[in-house]
């Protein structure tokens, strides 16, 4: 049973968003990390890059798979989680603690298009 945390927003493509003021932390869900298996590399975007919702944010590689991470929101990347560069396995260990990027959102109303915890639970069941 994959873990889902209340109070986060979720995307159909299995990213989560945690909102703090105008900022969004983005990571991948427990369900996503389980499907990928042992993660060996997280490709991080560059800070100051602009990204639009639905655009490719980064890519995650496991031993046997590679998956693109789609940005759930539009905005500017203000921080990347550099810890993942050396320790990509942290995403396996705790996918909700180990966010990938922090985005300064341009349009908070985009969040309304995302799923809540209950809706996401339905999606993956």
């Amino acid at each position: 049973m994959s873990k889902i945390i209340d109070g986060l927003y979720y995307a159909n493509s299995h990213e989560w968003v945690k909102v703090e003021d105008a900022f969004a932390y983005v990571g991948i869900t427990d369900y996503a990390q389980e499907s990928l298996g042992e993660i060996v590399f997280v490709e991080l975007p560059e800070e100051d890059d602009e990204i639009s919702a639905g655009g490719e944010l980064s890519a995650i590689e496991s031993v046997k798979a590679a998956s693109d991470i789609v940005s759930p929101v539009t905005g500017t990347i203000v921080m990347v989680n550099e810890e993942l560069e050396d320790s990509p396995e942290l995403v396996n260990e705790d996918p909700y603690e180990n966010w990938i990027v922090k985005i300064e959102m341009e349009n908070k109303s985009e969040l309304e298009a995302l799923l809540n915890a209950a809706e996401y639970k339905e999606l993956i069941e």
């Binding site: 042992e38 060996v40 590399f41 031993v63 990509p88 396995e89």
Partner: peptide
């Protein structure tokens, strides 16, 4: 050799 640790090799 026996089964290999592919994850460490890729990390």
């Amino acid at each position: 050799v026996k089964r290999l640790d592919e994850a460490t090799a890729a990390r």
